[in-house]
């Protein structure tokens, strides 16, 4: 039995198929990359996994349980955390309060939530901005806050949606280190990323989609050499 799998997921928006039959399996403890050109359906796939969209057809199965009909907050409680590509900080709350709100998904008292939040903030390296309002963070901080908040919900499976986009080279290295650290801590990761350097370095396996359909799957090296992938990214001249 696969730890996590999506089975021929389809999502239509009106007459447009954003995702059209994507299937993949993720093993426990791996970093699984999801790539594809703009508009290929990566984020829509994430939205179906985390319950923001109902799939038109297909299934999402987490630890043997169908979850595609569940509401978003229930999916979070089951142990699937996510970050947003377009960051959604709780602006007029401090960084600590953002993370405390997330920690309340696992504990009920203020003291426990604070402790859990502190741990998550230290783990993700946001201690120096703990008491700053979330809206005053620069983009790198906001991306990191997304991860910190998701970690405070103690996910077994973490969906990262372009957490490295918009970061400078130093911040990129830090982001890669953090993602590896999260995996080493026992969390399985599915990551969407456009920055090839990031996705090629950290992924154990990569799944490439284009126009909502699978075009390749394999190790980073295999996928990078795949004809269909090169065509999708660079055009037929280079294939």
């Amino acid at each position: 039995m696969a730890y996590f799998k999506v089975e021929s997921l389809v999502k239509y928006f009106g007459g447009l198929a954003a995702v059209n039959g994507v299937s993949f399996e993720v093993a426990k403890g791996e970093i699984f990359g999801l790539i594809g050109p703009n508009g290929s359906g990566k984020t829509t796939t994430f939205n179906m996994i985390s319950g923001y969209h109902r799939p038109t057809s297909g299934r999402v199965i987490f630890k043997g349980r169908e979850i595609h009909h569940l509401k978003t907050y229930k999916i979070c409680k089951l142990g699937i955390g996510r970050t947003f590509q377009v960051v959604k900080p709780l602006g007029r709350m401090s960084v600590l309060d953002n993370v405390i709100a997330a920690a309340f998904s696992r504990v009920n008292t203020m003291a426990e939530a604070r402790e859990l939040a502190q741990k998550s903030i230290e783990f993700c390296g946001l201690s120096h901005v703990r008491d700053v309002l979330a809206k005053s963070l620069p983009i790198a901080g906001r991306k990191r806050l997304e991860i910190t908040r998701a970690m405070a919900t103690q996910p077994e499976l973490l969906l990262l949606d372009e957490t490295a986009a918009g970061l400078n080279p130093t911040e990129l290295i830090e982001a890669i280190d953090l993602i590896k650290k999260i995996r080493d801590n026992g969390t399985t990761i599915v990551i969407i990323e456009h920055i090839m350097h990031v996705i090629m370095t950290i992924s154990d396996r990569i799944h490439a989609i284009n126009f909502g359909q699978t075009i390749a799957e394999g190790t980073p090296v295999e996928v990078a050499r795949n004809q269909a992938v090169i065509e999708a990214y660079l055009g037929t001249d280079y294939a």
């Binding site: 985390s50 319950g51 923001y52 509401k71 978003t72 907050y73 979070c76 409680k77 955390g81 996510r82 947003f84 959604k88 900080p89 709780l90 602006g91 007029r92 709350m93 309060d97 709100a101 997330a102 309340f104 998904s105 908040r149 998701a150 919900t153």
Partner: peptide
């Protein structure tokens, strides 16, 4: 307060 600040983010936090 989380709901006030961002309802979608709030959902994702359980």
């Amino acid at each position: 307060v989380s709901i006030r600040e961002d309802q979608d983010a709030a959902e994702s936090l359980g």
